[in-house]
Design a protein around this nucleic acid. Sequence first.
DNA 1: GTCTATAACGGGATAGAC
DNA 2: GTCTATCCCGTTATAGAC
Lengths: 208, 208
Amino acid sequence: MIESGDTKTRILDTAERLFGLKGYENTSLRDITAEAQVNLAAVNYHFHTKDALLDAVIARRVGPVNKRRLDMLDAAGPDPTVEQILTAFLEPVLDIGLESAVPLVGRILSSPDLFLDRVYKRHFLVVSERFRAAMIRALPGAPVDSILWGLLFTVGAMTHMMALSRILPEITAGVCSMTDRPSIVARAVDFLAAGFRAAVHKELICAG
Amino acid sequence: MIESGDTKTRILDTAERLFGLKGYENTSLRDITAEAQVNLAAVNYHFHTKDALLDAVIARRVGPVNKRRLDMLDAAGPDPTVEQILTAFLEPVLDIGLESAVPLVGRILSSPDLFLDRVYKRHFLVVSERFRAAMIRALPGAPVDSILWGLLFTVGAMTHMMALSRILPEITAGVCSMTDRPSIVARAVDFLAAGFRAAVHKELICAG
DNA sequence: GTCTATAACGGGATAGAC
DNA sequence: GTCTATCCCGTTATAGAC
């Protein structure tokens, strides 16, 4: 597992993989520099602190993913379906490196402080707003709180399979795995779209 | 925030709260003993290591929760509905302390190593098997992999709202919060049940 | 830009008196 | 059971030579 590229890229690649594998706190800069075959002081030279290194690792992935999400949402036209919205949200993030970026993002999104300060406030506000608005348009009559809870369940399902991707086969007797990405996206989209629609039906029944 | 009870209980209560608030690695034994107003060495006397303290904190919650889950599943009779199964799975775990146990369990379940070694293998195998079997009975015709993915999405939705419970109002402009537990259970059950049923319908359509 | 060496600190764990 | 004092280790970060 020898990383390629210049020193800075090797540090980023290795940090991403180890942060995803063992978590931020359980990964020392010595672990990273040893595997990346660079000097310990190079981290502080290129990134100043371990904290800033994590920011750099996150930003390198989250920016492009959110751009792809918005592009896919735009490409679906002015009135995307629930399925198109969910696909635009899920597909880009599941399409990043399975061995490194996927577990890392899973960890980040399930950690309240990291998520709030380093992802939500910096990278996620506009995406969140766009997808919320699109879902409200796609589900006329659905109360806003149902939409928000649905998006929360969506992020939860997505985050959990990313966080547990490495041990998925072990806890499902080999049935589930993250390798066949397109089929997983389709499966999740069907499951979640039905959940969103159930909230609308319930509302209509109660109102009528 | 002064904990009550004897030394051992005070340590357990404080550790649970701080592990949930900041995470295991970011909480030192000095943090715990200072807040619990006990001596540092008392931790090692009562629990031997920090690692074993975490096990004790987890076991104290997970055991009773899983017992209640199985009791509720049994109480639903020999052929529980999808909704009854999901309620039996979600309600007990959302009924533990909102300020301490809920965030902690959220963190544990989203951390692959902790989940696998300390929860799944020790406390979760029988529960997992019982709920899997019940769901297969409740959804005749559904392929097993759909059931397993559905349970994964269920655990993901549950885990995520527990892990982010503290910041939920902040990221939803005050719309979502974990305080009204019964309505959250009902909402999640409706959403997830629709997802499970969608997998069956899809299968029947393709087969027919 | 890259390296060696080291400073400065906080952590878990323990010995031994009471 | 409880406390004080301390050991010993790994960590991040930096100083300064090359």
